[in-house]
Every structure is written in structure tokens, then in C-alpha cells.
């Protein structure tokens, strides 16, 4: 009993003031939720959540999402030079690059050149650290802003070259 009780503190304890203060906060939220706009993801509004499948969030520009192999926009050929750096730098060995030496004509000359044949990317083990895209010398491999990577089978998580170039088919909900 070291603390001196004042009438005020005794009254506020008897009248459950401490509980009512908390209740007032929640009641205020409840009332605001009924009248305020609900644009979603606005921290100043009473309702913060966005209606996800209906409203797709805009993820950051630097988002590390679904992988993609870029093609050269002029020629339509893959930018990948099959240098295997991405596979080497990946901490969890997600990538395997298939390569072949092909003869290519460059004008009159014939050259031997390493070209990409297959490219496998196991999204089930990828941790989206972004090291591979950082190290890619030709800006070929890119982690895009696509974030819905769910598929219906385990095997479907391994993306082949075609999928990497086209991207995953994402179902968008309108309802």
C-alpha cells in the first residue's frame, strides 16, 4: 500500500474506466468502418484491407516474383547467352541451363557459338533472393512483378524454357 489512493483513482477503478477507454477505441473503429470510404490499403482509413482477388495489388517495381527469360525485342531471339552464371550463383541450385555449340552464320563467316537449348527453373525451391537476376550479364533473366505462382501439381512448379519466356497463365477474378 505504498501508493496513496486518490478519490479519482479509486473512482476510475470502480467505474472500470481503464476498460472503457479501450472499448471506446474499438467502438470508434467500428463506427468509422461503417461510414468511411474503403479504398483498401490506406492506413488513415478505418478499413485497411483490400479485397484481394477482386482488386489486384500493385506490387513494387523491384518486386522479385515469377522468373522470366527475356527475348531481344528486335530479333525475337533469346537474350540468354548460356553463360551459366545464374546457375552458379544460385544458393539453392534452382536453375539448370542447357547449352549446345552450334554453327551460326554471321554474314560470310561461320562461327561456333554457344546457344541456349533448355532452361529449367524450379520455382518450388527458389527463394526469390534475386542473386541470379543481379548477375545475369545480358539482363535476360528477370524476376517479374507476377506473384501468383500456385499450380496444381508439384511437377508444374518446374518451369521450362517455354514457360519462362511466355510467363505463367494467371487467372484473374472479376467477381
Amino acid at each position: 500500500m505504498s501508493e496513496r489512493r486518490s478519490i479519482g483513482s479509486v473512482l476510475s477503478r470502480l467505474l472500470l474506466v481503464d476498460l472503457f477507454k479501450g472499448l471506446a477505441v474499438t467502438l470508434r473503429y467500428n463506427a468509422r468502418a461503417l461510414v468511411e470510404a474503403r479504398d483498401g490499403a490506406d492506413p488513415t482509413q478505418a478499413i485497411y484491407t483490400a479485397q484481394y482477388p477482386k482488386e489486384r495489388p500493385l506490387v513494387g517495381e523491384r518486386w522479385r516474383g515469377a522468373p522470366k527469360l527475356n527475348n531481344d525485342p528486335r530479333t525475337g531471339e533469346s537474350l540468354c547467352i548460356a553463360c551459366n552464371i545464374c546457375a552458379l550463383v544460385c544458393p539453392v541450385d534452382v536453375i539448370s541451363v542447357g547449352q549446345a555449340n552450334r554453327e551460326v552464320r554471321d554474314g560470310e563467316k561461320r562461327k561456333k557459338k554457344k546457344v541456349l537449348t533448355t532452361f529449367e527453373f524450379d520455382t518450388s525451391r527458389c527463394m526469390f533472393c534475386g542473386l541470379c537476376q543481379e548477375q545475369c550479364p545480358t539482363l535476360c533473366l528477370e524476376l517479374t512483378q507476377e506473384f501468383e505462382l500456385a499450380v496444381e501439381s508439384r511437377a508444374g512448379l518446374v518451369w521450362d524454357r517455354e514457360m519462362l519466356e511466355k510467363g505463367i497463365h494467371v487467372v484473374t477474378y472479376k467477381k
Binding site: P43, G60, E61, R62
Partner: peptide, 13 residues
């Protein structure tokens, strides 16, 4: 969530 959004825009995750 607000902090995570800041991280998302800055670092990508």
C-alpha cells in the same frame, strides 16, 4: 504492413 510495403518498394521483397 506499411513497413513491409516500404521494404517491398525498396528491396523487392
Amino acid at each position: 504492413e506499411e513497413i513491409l510495403k516500404i521494404f517491398e518498394n525498396f528491396t523487392g521483397a
